[in-house]
């Protein structure tokens, strides 16, 4: 309960800064309008106006909350105007991408830990893969997929998500699988344990804390990857598409509500991984 106060303080500070920003950024439009109409506005009048503009540059928090309420609770979830519908599209691709990325990251990590050749040949490419801007790769993946006859948009989105999320899992698991010290490996050797036995009984359990930490980073990265995959032209569904459409055609409030929705989604996913981590480590007796 002690932690509630600091958390609320930070939330309150963020909302206060947001409101101040809304006043500052939206007042330009208010003042322009007033000048054209030839009226003088008092400060309270300016502030009141900045809170309720229809096309506010930075919508105030209560406007965003109202918009999210309107596009979630008040819309059927099958509607194309429902944020829940779009969130589901994004979440679906994120989870597939995460599963694919985790599998790739884990497999590569095992090979790298057990083979010096793999370590020297694969690791540099894994690092290079992350230096390429994802926005440059994403359209290419989409084009290549559709030229291969895969019309389902889910596939390229999941691949882009996997491309972003395999890396933290790879790096974390290489570190994790190497975390047993020389003494513990020697102990395995004195039992004449096979490689397979020392993997299942020593290396894998030792790597669990690393696995969950890297999965938390990975699942957030997968969400970012999916949203980037929804940005290139053609996508009409998903949070990324909502952001792009809001950006180009709609009022800014659409972008903001989609952004908030994306961060709620990311927070939720990380929290779920965190919960699985707590339960698993507790069952393993490593929760001190």
């Amino acid at each position: 309960m002690k932690s509630v106060f600091p958390i609320l303080t930070v939330v309150a500070a963020i909302i206060a800064i947001w409101y101040a920003g809304a006043v500052w950024m939206n007042s330009q439009w208010t003042l322009d309008q007033a000048r054209r109409a030839g009226v003088e506005l008092t400060l309270p009048e300016i502030i009141r106006d900045t809170m309720n503009q229809e096309r506010a540059t930075l919508p105030a928090p209560h406007q965003v909350v109202a918009e999210i309420w309107k596009t979630t609770a008040e819309k059927k979830i099958t509607s194309k105007r429902s944020l829940i519908f779009h969130s589901w599209i994004t979440l679906h691709a994120t989870l597939w991408g995460f599963a694919l990325g985790a599998l790739i990251g884990l497999t590569l990590a095992i090979f790298i830990v057990y083979s010096r050749v793999m370590d020297m040949s694969v690791m540099p490419w894994a690092i290079i893969s992350q230096t390429v801007p994802i926005v440059a790769i994403a359209p290419m993946i989409i084009v290549v997929m559709s030229s291969m006859g895969i019309q389902e948009r889910l596939v390229p989105k999941a691949i882009i998500a996997a491309y972003l999320c395999y890396f933290p899992i790879l790096v974390g698991m290489v570190k994790g699988l190497r975390s047993p010290d020389a003494m513990q490996l020697d102990l395995m050797k004195t039992y004449n344990a096979s490689n397979r036995q020392s993997f299942w009984k020593l290396r894998l359990p030792s790597s669990m804390p690393y696995l969950f930490t890297s999965m938390k980073i990975g699942i957030a990265a997968a969400l970012v990857g999916t949203i980037v995959g929804e940005l290139p032209t053609g996508a009409l569904r998903g949070l990324g598409a909502r952001i792009l459409i809001g950006d180009q055609f709609g009022p800014p409030i659409r972008i903001w509500s989609a952004l908030i929705m994306a961060s709620i989604l990311a927070g939720g996913l990380v929290a779920i991984v965190g919960l699985i981590q707590r339960i698993t480590l507790k069952r393993m007796g490593m929760n001190q």
């Binding site: 102990l187 039992y191 036995q197 359990p205 393993m284 007796g285 490593m286």
Partner: peptide, 28 residues
């Protein structure tokens, strides 16, 4: 498996109980 080796540090696995740790060589 002619010998048992005891190191300077106990080196017990934190994720296994005491009985689980003692079982480790037996499982292997």
């Amino acid at each position: 498996r002619a010998y048992g080796y005891v190191f300077q540090a106990a080196g017990l696995y934190p994720w296994r109980t005491i009985a689980g740790n003692i079982k480790l060589p037996l499982e292997i």
